[in-house]
């Protein structure tokens, strides 16, 4: 029905166009009759144009309507496909093959992510994303746990968002960088395989952060460095061995292993120290002097009571001129 409508519409417009042409012609003719310049040339042009337009109009109309119909159909089909691709279920269907795993497979892969393998044989990487995604969500939960367990309360809301941002940005960003380098170095590995490899590699971060939080040695980082070197090192070796087994050439291997090791180990250091450093600073501040308003108030109140007993209130005003006044007035 719509096509029929369009065709009739285009016919209508064509007719009106023809009528317009006629109008133009007559006007032109009038002008020509009135003017003296180039009368012959314009007259011949008028004949050509008018004659051609009238003889080709059905053909032109059909052609135009067909073009319009085709464009419309193409556009509709394209829009529909795009909408389908962007719809939720469309995306789910695209991702579903990557989530097709069994529990024991995930368990085995998690365990194997700590075991380096010889680089002689080309090692298999599974195209699977369930494990990596869950590892990252676990890491986010552990980061929240770490912040809270370390009584790190300042700007917690921001940090909770940051935990999400940091973990996903690292995963996607590092995978993007590695994918580019692998492309440059001619490594036989796909983007999904890199995502999977890096995601499983993050399980070492989970273990180290969990142990580092539960067995917390306040100002001594030797325990953490041991975990960092052993567990982080093992998972790094595993990833490096997998990537190297698929790469040819010493220079390329050196670049890839260097970048991968640096990214992986530095990220673990960052995750530990980005939050713990703040905690240490804070605890140092709390230990050294009371700068938080609440204890100040208490101190002032205590000293106020003492000084009232002693009968000398001017000392308080010198020590805490801002805070002491309202308290003095309220106590008086």
């Amino acid at each position: 029905m719509e096509n029929l409508k369009e065709i009739t519409l285009t016919h209508c417009t064509k007719q009106s166009a023809v009528i317009d042409l006629g109008d133009v012609e007559t006007e032109e003719f009038k002008v020509l009759n009135e003017s003296d310049y180039e009368s012959d040339e314009v007259a011949s042009r008028k004949d050509k144009g008018g004659g051609g337009g009238q003889s080709g109009s059905p053909y032109e109309a059909a052609k135009q309507s067909m073009t319009e119909n085709m464009t419309k159909m193409m556009w509709q089909a394209g829009t529909q496909q795009a909408r389908k691709a962007w719809s939720l279920y469309g995306n789910i269907d695209i991702l579903r093959p990557y989530f097709d795993v069994e529990p024991h497979e995930v368990r085995t892969r998690l365990f194997q992510s700590f075991i380096p393998k010889p680089i002689k044989d080309r090692q298999k990487i599974h195209k699977e994303l369930y494990g990596p995604v869950m590892v990252i969500f676990t890491l986010i939960a552990l980061l929240l746990f770490q912040m809270k367990a370390a009584e790190h309360k300042v700007e917690e809301g921001t940090l909770m968002g940051t935990a999400f941002g940091v973990c996903f940005t690292y995963w996607l960003g590092a995978a993007g960088l590695m994918w580019f380098l692998c492309f440059v170095c001619n490594t036989r590995i796909s983007a999904v395989q890199i995502l999977s490899l890096l995601g499983y590699g993050l399980s070492s971060h989970c273990v180290v952060i969990l142990l580092g939080t539960v067995i917390h040695t306040s100002h001594d980082h030797i325990f953490f460095y041991c975990l960092w070197a052993i567990i982080g090192g093992l998972s790094t070796l595993r990833m490096v061995s997998v990537v190297l087994s698929r790469t040819q050439g010493h220079r390329q291997r050196l670049i890839l292993s260097g970048v991968l090791t640096t990214l992986h180990l530095l990220f673990l250091l960052y995750l530990h120290f980005a939050y713990h450093q703040i905690v240490e600073d804070l605890s140092g501040v709390f230990d050294d002097k009371d700068v938080v308003p609440n204890p100040v108030k208490d101190n002032v109140h205590d000293s106020l009571v003492d000084n009232n007993i002693m009968g000398n209130s001017s000392v308080i005003e010198q020590d805490h001129p801002d805070v002491a006044h309202p308290l003095l007035t309220s106590s008086n």
Binding site: K153, V154, E155, E156, G157, V292, P293, N294
Partner: peptide, 8 residues
């Protein structure tokens, strides 16, 4: 204000 703790 008192503790510098925003809380969730």
């Amino acid at each position: 204000i008192l503790t510098g703790d925003g809380g969730p």
